[in-house]
Amino acid sequence: MDHIAFGDSPISRCQFYRRVCDLPANIDPPHLGRIIMTAEHVWALMLPAHLGQAVKIRMQHQGSDIGPILSHPRSNRWTYLIRPDIPDDVLLFAEMFRLNVSVVRTGGTVALPSPVDQGEQFRRWIEPPRCTFRPSGLVVVDAIRACSEHCRPVRRKDAHA
């Protein structure tokens, strides 16, 4: 799905996302062919790519199904599409904020890969959606917590400090 196939267009891709994957996708704006998903019955967790990769590996080693994951290479972030089972808990959101993890809840927007994206510099699937499965948001949050201590990027000391 990452490569433009014969007949692949924003309309056909959007229909695939809707019909096969049950993702509430729309083309917005139509003249650019960008595909977005408004979070409703599907939410998302957006996190730094290094943490996202560690979470994926951990979930796979634990035998958890992964579900759709997309990459935003220019911002070096990954997005996990999840079931909307994360409670409305200020402490949980603060914890995720400290880890640079955004919870995209009902009404939020996620840009999905489109065949008109220029190569893979904007968005690409790490794990493409193949059906309606999405992992529990709480399972992904638990994996984020477990990986966060081991995945922090090494920070260089400022030479002028």
Rank of each mutant, 00 (worst) to 15 (best):
M1G: 13
H3A: 14
A5I: 07
S9R: 03
P10M: 04
I11H: 04
C14Q: 02
Q15P: 05
F16L: 09
F16N: 06
R18C: 04
V20W: 06
V20C: 10
V20M: 08
C21I: 00
D22Q: 14
A25N: 03
N26A: 11
N26G: 07
I27L: 07
I27W: 00
D28Y: 11
P29L: 14
P30T: 08
P30W: 05
H31E: 15
L32G: 03
I35M: 02
M37L: 15
T38M: 05
T38L: 04
E40H: 12
V42R: 00
V42K: 04
W43Q: 02
W43Y: 11
A44Q: 04
L45K: 02
P48K: 06
P48Q: 09
A49W: 02
A49S: 14
H50K: 11
H50V: 06
G52R: 03
A54G: 14
V55W: 04
V55M: 07
V55Y: 02
V55N: 00
K56E: 08
M59P: 00
M59W: 01
Q60N: 12
Q60C: 08
Q60R: 15
H61Y: 11
H61S: 15
Q62G: 11
G63D: 11
S64P: 00
D65P: 01
D65Q: 15
D65K: 14
D65E: 12
I66T: 10
P68Y: 04
P68Q: 00
I69F: 03
I69Q: 06
L70Q: 01
S71V: 09
H72S: 10
H72R: 12
P73K: 06
P73D: 10
R74P: 02
S75T: 15
T79P: 03
Y80P: 01
L81W: 00
R83Q: 15
I86K: 01
I86H: 04
V90I: 14
V90M: 12
F93Q: 12
F93H: 09
F97I: 02
R98I: 05
V103E: 00
V103Q: 02
V103A: 03
V104M: 02
R105T: 14
R105L: 02
T106V: 13
G107R: 11
G107I: 10
G108C: 06
L112Q: 04
L112D: 04
P113C: 05
P115F: 01
P115N: 06
V116Y: 07
V116Q: 05
D117A: 09
D117C: 12
Q121P: 04
F122S: 11
R123G: 03
R124S: 10
R124I: 05
R124A: 08
W125A: 10
I126N: 07
I126K: 03
E127G: 00
E127K: 08
P128D: 09
P128Y: 06
P129E: 05
C131L: 10
F133P: 02
R134C: 01
P135K: 03
P135E: 08
S136R: 02
G137K: 03
L138G: 00
V141C: 07
D142Q: 13
D142C: 09
I144L: 12
R145L: 08
C147A: 11
E149P: 03
E149N: 09
H150D: 13
H150K: 14
V154E: 13
R155M: 15
R155H: 12
R156D: 15
R156C: 05
K157A: 10
D158R: 15
